[in-house]
């Protein structure tokens, strides 16, 4: 009996967006009286940070401070249409819709400012800190707040914009199955080291190291949050998590968190990641999606590391201690 170490690797090529009957998201942007901007969406933030990312994208496209953008999401009764938060699509789809809406609102904002300053709107620029001024003449300026006040109370305009991103449905070739369902692809590779106890079948994951290529990162801290959380989820799926441990038999299906075993804080190794940025032409400021892929490559990487450690070929998950001990028994029996 021994503790054996192994290394495993796996790569993933992950699409952003999906087929369905077209894959649209719409966005509306408008200024309040005081020059804050509201982005209205039906897209939902699940905790991954969508509202933060879309506020960053809106602020960049509008040319106003991040702190002055409020993202209002998640009411599908009243909001503009969104297919939903899935398929790693929302930063890309909603982001594109927000950019389009923000650019239209920015155009109105600059027209209002131009009338107040008695200049040509094409000659105006924003400083990103709350002011609009004449290009080359920073003293010729008006605050975004004053421009919004003028729009509401003097000029009678809505500083607003409409945005939509639609990936039309791509019909599938009946002969080849070929279609164009997504908008761009992100890529990753994960290397995992494990230590397997051949007496108990217990697996300790020693390290999870990944490289990701996800286009332009909009928010690196949130990207890392996805990667670390996904590494843990992948580890759990590889080692213990299942709703049908004896599939297709439903015996011993877990009914709660006591039976559905997830790794805890003590099982979590350090996670290293590097992120490569190759902006995609279809994305908002070049962004691709990173939502789901983070839990993909860690799963086969963990299983491959176990196989490498033991000299076996396990191909199903989860690789529980029972699975490992049976694989070792089979290996011993075939050697005898």
């Amino acid at each position: 009996m021994a503790k054996l170490r192994g290394t495993g690797m796996a790569a993933v090529n992950y699409p952003t967006g999906m087929h369905l009957g077209g894959d649209p998201t719409q966005a509306l942007v408008h200024a309040t009286t005081t020059g804050n901007f509201v982005v209205t969406l039906s897209s939902v933030d699940l905790g991954q940070g969508l509202k933060t990312v879309l506020a960053q994208i809106a602020a960049e496209a509008l040319g106003v401070p991040f702190e002055t953008v409020l993202v209002d999401t998640g009411d599908t009764d009243t909001g503009p249409h969104c297919t939903g938060t899935f398929a790693s699509r929302t930063t890309h789809r909603a982001g594109n819709a927000v950019v389009m809406a923000a650019r239209e609102a920015r155009k109105v904002l600059l027209e209002v400012a131009a009338e107040e300053l008695e200049v040509n709107a094409d000659d105006l620029v924003t400083d990103g800190e709350g002011s609009i001024h004449l290009a080359g003449a920073p003293e010729m300026k008006i605050s975004v707040t004053d421009a919004a006040l003028a729009a509401h109370f003097v000029q009678g305009k809505t500083v607003s914009g409409r945005g939509v991103y639609l990936k039309p449905m791509s019909p599938m070739d009946p002969e080849t199955g070929e279609c164009d369902p997504d908008s761009t692809h992100a890529h990753a590779c994960t290397v995992v080291e494990v230590e397997v106890d051949t007496e108990t079948g217990a697996v300790a994951v020693l390290s999870i190291k990944s490289a990701y290529e996800i286009g332009q990162q909009v928010n690196p801290a949130l990207v890392r949050g996805q990667i670390v959380g996904g590494a843990w989820m992948g580890m759990g799926h590889a080692l213990s998590e299942t709703t049908a441990p004896y599939y297709p038999a439903i015996d011993h299906a877990p009914r709660d968190f006591l039976g559905y075993v997830m790794p805890g804080a003590a099982e979590m190794p350090e996670v290293e990641c590097v992120v490569l940025e190759h902006p995609t032409e279809t994305g908002p400021f070049g962004a691709k999606g990173i939502g789901e892929m983070v839990a993909n490559s860690p799963i086969p990487a963990v299983v491959n590391a176990i196989n490498n450690a033991l000299g076996v070929r396990i191909t199903e998950i989860p690789v529980t201690p029972e699975v490992i001990l049976r694989a070792l028994d089979e290996k011993a029996a075939s050697a005898a």
Binding site: G47, Q48, G225, V228, G229, G230, A231, W232, M233, F257, M262, G264, A265, A266, M268, E270, V271
Partner: peptide
Amino acid sequence: IIEALSGNLCRCTGYLPII
């Protein structure tokens, strides 16, 4: 710290940021 948090599940973060 890990022992003190061992009774608390988190589904999102992978625990490292919490630790």
